[in-house]
Structure formats: C-alpha cells, structure tokens
Amino acid sequence: MNFQVTVLKILAAYPDGFAVMEDLKRDMAILATSGRDWADRTRRLAARVPDLNILSQGLVERLSGGWKITAKGRAVLEVMEARPAASETAHVTASESSSPSLPESIPPLRQPADRAKRRRERRERRREARERARANAS
C-alpha cells in the first residue's frame, strides 16, 4: 500500500478535504487491511507520479489536529486517476486490430455529473459506516 496516495484518497473523500488524525489513522487501517486490491491500486496510481511527497510538495497541509488536502493535491490526484492516454496503453499489432472480436464502436465515457453523483454517494456511505462504527464502539 502506498501511504501517500492513500492519504490523498482519504482526504479527498471528506467533504471539506480535512480529516482529524484519529479519523485518518482509522481509515488508513481499514484500507491497509482491506486486501491486495487496494495495495495494487495505490501502487499503480503512485507509479504515475514518481517522487511523490505530499507534504513537501504542498499537496497536503497540516492544520490543528489533522491534515487537509489542497487544491494542488486534488489536481495531482486527478492526474493520477486519469485514464491512460493512447500512447500509454498496450500497443495493438495490425493482426490484432483486424480481429472480429473487438467492438466496432467504443461507448461514450460517463459524464462528469455521473461521476460526481457516484462520488457523493460513496462519501455518504463512508460517512454512514463511520457513524455506525462509532455507535457500535460505544
């Protein structure tokens, strides 16, 4: 698991981008124990931005009691999560491109509004899960 990518992802999931250290540590522990998928995903994202250092590059700022993602941090996270350009994807040979199994047309990408809606829904589910966990812990 890549610590710095995970911190960016967690902070971006909070509505104002700020998380107190207790919440940040708890979310990190959940993701660290969630399985290999998360570790593989953060490794792939980190490979897109070599020499990532969230604090010295100003992607995250320390505030009283917690950390907050900056606008620059959100921009870097978007770059990491962007679909790879055609030059970055695997090259297809001429014999493979004439294969009848490939689709003739590529469906359009989802609109940003759909993505924002899904992101809001994920945040709400996470928030509800945190509240349930706090209620069960007490």
Rank of each mutant, 00 (worst) to 15 (best):
G58W: 01
A19M: 08
R119S: 15
R41A: 10
E124W: 07
R122T: 11
S98D: 14
E131R: 07
R122V: 11
K72N: 06
E128H: 05
E104W: 08
L11G: 12
V5N: 00
S138L: 12
M28S: 08
Q4W: 05
E124K: 06
L63Y: 05
D23V: 04
A135I: 05
L102R: 11
E104Q: 11
L63D: 08
K68I: 12
D37Y: 05
D23P: 00
T6H: 01
V60Q: 03
L55D: 06
E22H: 07
T33D: 14
T70H: 02
L45M: 09
E121G: 03
T93L: 15
P100L: 13
V60K: 01
E81L: 14
L52Q: 01
P112Q: 10
E121K: 04
R125N: 10
L55G: 01
R44M: 07
S34L: 06
L11V: 11
V20S: 11
A39T: 03
K25E: 13
I106M: 14
P15M: 10
G35M: 06
A39G: 08
G66T: 05
S56E: 07
P84F: 03
N2W: 07
D40C: 02
Q57L: 06
R62W: 07
R130Q: 12
Q4R: 01
A75G: 06
T70C: 04
G66L: 05
T6N: 09
Q4A: 04
L63S: 08
Q57P: 00
L31I: 09
R120A: 15
E88L: 10
G65I: 09
P50M: 02
S95A: 15
A86M: 14
A133Q: 08
L52P: 00
R118V: 13
Q57H: 03
R74Y: 09
V7M: 09
N53P: 00
L59A: 04
S95H: 11
A113Q: 10
V76C: 05
A133T: 05
A86N: 13
S98A: 15
D27Y: 03
W67K: 03
D51A: 05
S87F: 13
A90K: 12
I30Q: 10
R110S: 15
T33R: 10
R36K: 10
K117I: 13
A19G: 07
F3V: 04
R74S: 10
A90S: 12
W67Y: 13
Y14L: 15
L55I: 08
Q4L: 02
N53G: 01
Y14M: 14
S56T: 07
V20T: 12
V20F: 12
A137F: 07
